[in-house]
Amino acid sequence: MPVPVLETKDLTIRFGGLTAVMDLNIHLDEGELVGLIGPNGAGKTTVFNMLTGVYKPSAGTISFCGELLCSAEHSVPPSQISIKGIARTFQNIRLFKELSVLDNVKIAYHQHVKYGLATSFFHIGKYAAEEKEIEKKAIDLLQLFGLENKKNEQAKNLPYGEQRRLEIARALATRPKLLLLDEPAAGMNPQETQNLMELIRFIREEFDLTILLIEHDMSLVMGVCERIYVLDYGRVIAQGSPAEIRTNPKVIEAYLGSEGIA
């Protein structure tokens, strides 16, 4: 059996008296596109925050490509996790708003820069060649996302949908193995959502990615994911293919309890 890209064992986190996530056991095999759904406050974003080192779990372990990434005893800073190959987007877009679209992507390339600090002081040696390469790669990436003609605009001036796409582009610039998308379609109209679905499928092939996707938009999750985990009150209440999830009584109940399944 191949080693899963991501595996969590009994992952739990408590905030004071509140157990936001309880005994979470999920796994993603290489190249899979998996959905993580659940009603508001179910703990989805909290799972992402644990996977990226923002929160330290109270119990349980996270393994990445067969290697122990972090646990309650052993926490790793987010920057280290990014370097290991996990990238994410944020539910409430966290671009570098005042900076240009191009700089947003270039910053994410920083972890791959080979020239040293001394070179940066004098701009000698391989500086020029490497900066040129960074620029080219960033523009290539923006091209894939249809943003290259906006490369000099401030990120905050992009329309909402484009900001979401830029955030994905920025995450890809870190060259991840695993991409975590937190409600990438939030605030998009149906046409934009449709395009986004195609884009997500496309980048998975193009960049050999494994993707874990949080989504409220059921049509997106059902249309694009191969497997789905359903979280409610911090626990996995169901898992399986979209067809299985759609007819699972527990899921229907959880969603009817909040806003109803789309």
Partner: peptide, 12 residues
């Protein structure tokens, strides 16, 4: 600009 986003992009 955003310390948390910078950290998540691999910047120590």
């Amino acid at each position: 600009e955003d310390e948390m986003a910078a950290e998540t992009m691999g910047i120590h």
